[in-house]
Nucleic acid binder design. Structure first.
Lengths: 138, 138
DNA sequence: GGAAACGATACGCACCTGCGTATGATTTGT
DNA sequence: ACAAATCATACGCAGGTGCGTATCGTTTCC
């Protein structure tokens, strides 16, 4: 019985299961998946311009504008001109955005914790490391 | 440094990387991702009706018809009436479909092998088992 | 045996997505 | 200083996606 599914299919299945479990949590906090991804990326601090942000999260740069508009309207992020390059805008979390992200992140982690139940710490470590390897190889 | 990305984000990243690597391989064999998923599912033998097939691969049942039409037109699968329930159609791989699937599956596995380079057999085992666990829990 | 459920199919709709194009402001390279 | 590249933004288009609805033949269940 070589069950041997494609790795891609396994990733897709796990990803879908996680997304389905996390969807309601995001909804409770009034955020869409992409809005959360933006907040998380900004919280991580690794995005300078809007273009860089779009590339980092693999989101269409022309539609990122509307996404950010929504977050700005909710007071979760700000768009300020970059003093060193006045073409670019620097996107930053507001204090309210920081709080919102922290709250949602904790809720998300609780959901993941539940989905990971039954896996040893070592298995979890290997899982994360292997997924990171797959995402960054080649 | 609690890099600690969301598991969902990690799965998405790994899945995207695999899909990007496998896309060209599928194209070389003249198959779309969904066509390959159907072939693989049929090869696995675990689908009776078209409805069951759609649910198994999480594909919209109303659009599965056109997908199957394409595969039938290419002579890779057949749609025959189920003798035990004349409403249902049994979808089967043709000999040509079996060969096509085997060829693509081998090519896909070679790609995955390359992406997995650097992971020990034990790590690969844990990865597969953990992903399966995530996909099937709850 | 008649009503309700079910499978395959067709069709339309609303949304999301990636992609190309355009424009204005600003920076960079020569 | 002038041309070319760059960033944010707007707009549209073609394709994919899930979802609801309808029809037709068939099966199930009282």
């Amino acid at each position: 019985m070589t069950e041997d599914d494609d790795l891609a299919a396994l990733c897709a299945g796990a990803g879908r299961a996680l997304a389905e479990a996390e969807g309601p949590v995001l909804a409770e906090h009034g955020l869409s998946m992409w809005q959360y991804v933006v907040l998380a990326t900004l919280a991580h601090g690794s995005a300078s311009s809007q273009l860089a942000l779009a590339q980092q999260i693999h989101y269409d740069k022309t539609r990122l504008i509307a996404l950010l508009d929504g977050l700005v309207a909710e007071g979760l992020v700000t768009r300020s001109p970059d003093p060193s390059d006045r073409r670019a805008r620097i996107v930053r979390l507001t204090p309210s955005g920081i709080r919102r992200h922290a709250a949602v992140r904790d809720a998300i982690r609780a959901v993941e914790e539940r989905k990971l139940a039954g896996l040893s710490p070592e298995e979890r470590r290997v899982l994360r490391s292997a997924l990171t390897h797959l995402a960054n190889s080649d």
